[in-house]
Design a binder for these strands. Sequence first.
DNA 1: TAAAATTATGTTAACGTACACATTTTTTCT
DNA 2: AGAAAAAATGTGTACGTTAACATAATTTTA
Lengths: 343, 343
Amino acid sequence: MKKNTTIKDIAKLAGVSIGTVDRVLHNRGRVSKKALDKVNQALKELEYTPNPIARSLRNNVVYTIHILIPDAKQDPYWEPCMKGVSELMDEFAAFDLNFSLHTFDPSKPKSFLGAGNKILGEDPDALLFVPLFGKESTQLQKELNDRNILSTTFNSPVWEHVHHHVGQDLFLSGRVGAKLVSNLIDKPCEIAIIHVEEAYNNAAHMQEKENGFRSYFEEQHTDFKILTLILGSKEIRNNFDATVKKHPHIEAYFITTSRTYEVANAIHKLGIKKPVIGYDLLPENVVCLHNDKVQFLIHQAPRQQAYLGLRSLVEKLLFNKELAKVELLPIDIINSENVKSYL
Amino acid sequence: MKKNTTIKDIAKLAGVSIGTVDRVLHNRGRVSKKALDKVNQALKELEYTPNPIARSLRNNVVYTIHILIPDAKQDPYWEPCMKGVSELMDEFAAFDLNFSLHTFDPSKPKSFLGAGNKILGEDPDALLFVPLFGKESTQLQKELNDRNILSTTFNSPVWEHVHHHVGQDLFLSGRVGAKLVSNLIDKPCEIAIIHVEEAYNNAAHMQEKENGFRSYFEEQHTDFKILTLILGSKEIRNNFDATVKKHPHIEAYFITTSRTYEVANAIHKLGIKKPVIGYDLLPENVVCLHNDKVQFLIHQAPRQQAYLGLRSLVEKLLFNKELAKVELLPIDIINSENVKSYL
DNA sequence: TAAAATTATGTTAACGTACACATTTTTTCT
DNA sequence: AGAAAAAATGTGTACGTTAACATAATTTTA
C-alpha cells in the first residue's frame, strides 16, 4: 500500500532541499558535513532506493548498441542468435535504443577485426560479440575496456579480459556427453570423439569438451579406449568407411560440434547402428533425432545466449542493473521427445 | 541516433496541441473529425509508440500482488518456488509493488479456499497461484475473472477458465520419460509406472504423465508390459519387497512425482539394480543421481515457473506487456553431470 | 440575435530524478 | 569592518505521458 520513499521524503526528513539530497546521493560535493550526516541518516531510516523509471526518463539518452556475430549464411548454427537478437529488439522497441547488427565471416579473423574496428569507430555505448578468434578478440576486448565501452561476449569460452560473458561450462558439457554415452554402451569398449574440422576451427571450444568427456571416463577406472578423430566435412560425407575400417571397434560416437548429422548420416549409410551423441538443434540434427540416428543432442542454447547477453547490456544502460561477470546457462539434454519443447 | 517520436512531435506535425493528440490516442472523444484525421496521419507517418517509462512514471500506482502456493514445509517440492518468488521481488524492489505471500496446506482443499477468499477480500491487483485442487481452483478463477483481477496459474495442468498459465506439457513429459527408459533397457520387457500416493493426490498431473508414457510405448509396436502401481510412501519404505515379489520381472521404474528417491532407495536396499527415472531436483533425488540409484530426472523447473508467472504479472501491470494465454517451459532432462548447471 | 449550452482545443501540473543556475551563508582577505 | 571569494543550499526546468481544468469556437435555443 505504501509508496516507495522518494528524494522528496528524504529532503523533508533531513530538513534540507532535494538539491542537497541529490548532491549527497551522487556525492558531487558542495555539502556541509552537518547536512551530509542528516541526509545519510534519513536515507538509512527510510531505506531509500532510487526510482529506476524516473531515473531513466530523466537520463533520457539514445544509446547505441552494436552486435557482432558470425554470418548465419556461412554457419546455420548462428541463426538462432539472430532470432534472439531480434526478439530482444522487439521487446525494447519502445525505448530509445539504437541497435546496429554486424556479421563477420567465421572463417576469416580479418573479417572479425575489420568489423570490430568499424564498430569502435562509431563510438558505441555497448557491444555484444562472439569472441571466435582468441587473439583478435583479446585485442578488441582490451580496446573496449580501455575506452570504457560496455561489452558482453557469448558462446565462446571466457578469458581473462572479458567484462561480461554468457555461456556454458564446456568442460561440464563434455562430461554430460560422456555420461550419456555411458548409458548407451556396454562397458568397457572403444569410443570415438569426433571434431568436425571446419573452414574455421573453434579449437578451444572443442578441446574443452574433449577434456570434460575424457575426465568422466577416467574417473570410471574401467578400460575404455577413447579415440580422438579430427575429420573434415567432406571426408565424413565421402570417405567415412576408411575411418571405420581403421577403427572397427568403435561402439559410440561423440561429436563436438553442430555437424553431428554429418557423422550420423555417414555411419547410417554404412549400415552401422551405434549410439551417436552430438551438439545443437540444427534442423538436420533434429531429423536425425527423430530417425534415431542420433540419440541425444546437447543444446548450447544460442538463442538464449544472444538474448540474455543483449538483455544484460540493455538493462545495464537503461536501469543500471548490475552485470555478473559470468552467466552460465544450464546444459540441456535433448532427445526425440523433449526436443519439441525447446523449439 | 534518433530519439523516438513523442506526442509532442505528433502535435507539431498535426498542427494541434498535445492534449488533442492524447485524446486521440486514448480515444476519449471531444475531437473534431478534421483534427482526428490530421493526428492519425501524423501518428502513422512518424510511427509513434508511447514511451513506457514516461507512462509508468505518470501512472505511478502502488500495485498489490498476491501469491498463493503450497507450504514448502509440507512438501519440499515447493521450496524453489519460494526462491523464484523472492528472486523476482528483489529484482523489482525499486518499483511500487506490494507483494503478499500466502501458503496453503497441500493436503487440505479448504486451506486453499480459505486463503483464496482472504486474498479476494483484500482487493488485489493480481494473483499468482497453484491450482492444485480442480474444483476449488475453478471457483477461485471464476471469481477472479468476474472481478477482472489479473491472474496467473502455474505448475498444475491448464483448464478452461484460466487466464494465463505457466507450466509444462505433462503428456510430453511422460513421453520424455518413456524415451529415456527405452534407452536404458533391452526390449521388450516389463516396466513399472509408480505413482507415489501422497496425503493429497495431484491425480490429473500423474495421469497426464502416465498417458504420455504409455503413448510412447504403444507407438513402438513391441511387446512391452507396462504396469501402473499406486503406492504410499510408507508402503515403499517398509514393504517394497512385497511389490517386487508380486512383479518379479520389472526391468525399469518410472516414478511420476518428486518422491523418486523413495523408490530408488527401496529397490537399492533390496539389492536390485534396474533403471529408475523420476521427477524433480530435490536434494534427495540429486544424491540418488550421484549414487547412480537414479539415472535421469525430469526437471519441472518450479523456480522458473513461479518466477516467470510472477514476472508476467508484474510486467503486465507496470508496462502493460501482453500476456500469452499459456507459456510452456522446456522439459529438461537431468543426469548426474548436468545437474550442477541447474542448481 | 444574444445568451446558453455544447463541443473542441489548449494549458498546465504532476509522476521522481538530475542538473544548471540563482541565491544565501560562511569564510577569507585587505 | 567590509568587500570579495568560496562554499552551501535552494529553485526551477526538463524528460514524456496523462488528465484535470481553462479557454475558445461552434451550435442550439429562446
